Simulated assay, not measured.
Amino acid sequence: MKFLIYLSLMFLCSTIHAQEHYKYKASEAFPFGQPNPNAPEQISDYAKMIGTCQCKSTTRKQDGTWNDPEDMTWTWKYIMNGTAVQDETLKADGSHSGSIRQFVKDSSRWYVHWFSSKTPSTTFPVWEGNKKDDKIVLYREQQAPNGTDGYFRLTFYDMSKTGYKWIGEWVDKTESVVFPTWKIDCIRKN
């Protein structure tokens, strides 16, 4: 009997410790988690996107015209006890994708690891960048179809409590040549 009481007390103490220790994770009170005050201040860069938005995603066709917009749900939350951000998209065609976003103090940059159900991979593509003024701009090296060196640039902009916009563009190394290939407009659901 003493052993059962001891185990019960140990379980209770570890549960209380875990709740206090991980108080910034998603919970009933905070379904999308909370930013950890010990995280880099840049954790607030994504604050306006935390939650769920209904979005319209539009990609460019091979002929240069745009496809019809596709419905998409985009959900953002704080993870790793409020020290990182995760997002997940659920698309009308049944495909899904997401990212893990961590700010690394040593390089003063966000690193975004992207994954997708359409293109499973053993190594995730990584974008890196920062918030500049009122936009979050991320880059990944990528050659154009003609072999020109450049980047695939992702930009979040018009971020507010009611939603945000996103655009994916190929840019040359000087960013003087810009070719948009994907755009998303989002409206806050909750």
Results as ranks from 00 to 15, higher is better:
47 A>C: 08
47 A>W: 02
48 K>A: 05
48 K>W: 12
50 I>F: 10
52 T>G: 11
52 T>P: 05
52 T>M: 13
53 C>Y: 00
55 C>P: 11
57 S>P: 01
58 T>C: 05
60 R>W: 00
63 D>A: 09
66 W>N: 04
66 W>Y: 08
68 D>E: 14
69 P>S: 13
70 E>A: 03
70 E>M: 11
70 E>Q: 12
70 E>V: 05
71 D>I: 00
73 T>S: 04
75 T>L: 08
77 K>P: 00
79 I>N: 01
79 I>Y: 00
80 M>S: 12
80 M>R: 06
80 M>G: 06
83 T>S: 11
87 D>W: 11
88 E>C: 13
88 E>R: 15
89 T>W: 11
89 T>L: 09
91 K>Y: 00
92 A>N: 10
94 G>F: 02
95 S>T: 04
96 H>L: 02
97 S>H: 09
98 G>Y: 00
98 G>V: 00
99 S>A: 14
100 I>V: 15
101 R>K: 15
102 Q>W: 07
105 K>S: 14
109 R>C: 12
109 R>Q: 14
109 R>L: 14
110 W>I: 10
111 Y>F: 12
111 Y>V: 05
112 V>I: 14
113 H>Q: 10
113 H>V: 07
114 W>P: 03
114 W>Y: 07
115 F>Y: 10
116 S>H: 00
117 S>V: 13
122 T>E: 10
123 T>Q: 15
123 T>S: 06
124 F>E: 06
125 P>N: 06
128 E>R: 14
128 E>Q: 13
129 G>T: 09
129 G>E: 08
130 N>T: 13
131 K>D: 04
131 K>H: 08
131 K>W: 06
133 D>W: 08
133 D>N: 15
133 D>P: 05
134 D>P: 02
136 I>Q: 01
136 I>N: 02
136 I>C: 04
137 V>C: 03
137 V>K: 12
138 L>G: 04
139 Y>Q: 04
139 Y>M: 02
139 Y>P: 02
141 E>C: 03
141 E>Q: 13
145 P>V: 10
147 G>F: 13
147 G>R: 04
147 G>C: 13
148 T>K: 13
149 D>K: 12
150 G>N: 10
150 G>T: 01
151 Y>S: 10
152 F>Y: 10
152 F>G: 01
153 R>T: 07
156 F>V: 03
156 F>Y: 15
157 Y>P: 01
158 D>N: 15
160 S>W: 08
160 S>I: 08
161 K>D: 15
164 Y>W: 13
164 Y>F: 15
165 K>A: 07
165 K>G: 01
166 W>Y: 15
166 W>V: 00
167 I>Q: 06
167 I>V: 12
167 I>T: 13
167 I>E: 07
168 G>A: 08
168 G>Q: 05
170 W>H: 09
171 V>L: 05
172 D>I: 11
175 E>C: 11
176 S>Q: 11
176 S>K: 15
176 S>Y: 04
177 V>G: 09
177 V>Q: 12
178 V>A: 07
178 V>I: 14
179 F>V: 06
180 P>A: 05
181 T>L: 03
184 I>V: 12
184 I>E: 00
184 I>R: 00
185 D>F: 00
185 D>E: 07
186 C>K: 04
186 C>Y: 06
187 I>Y: 15
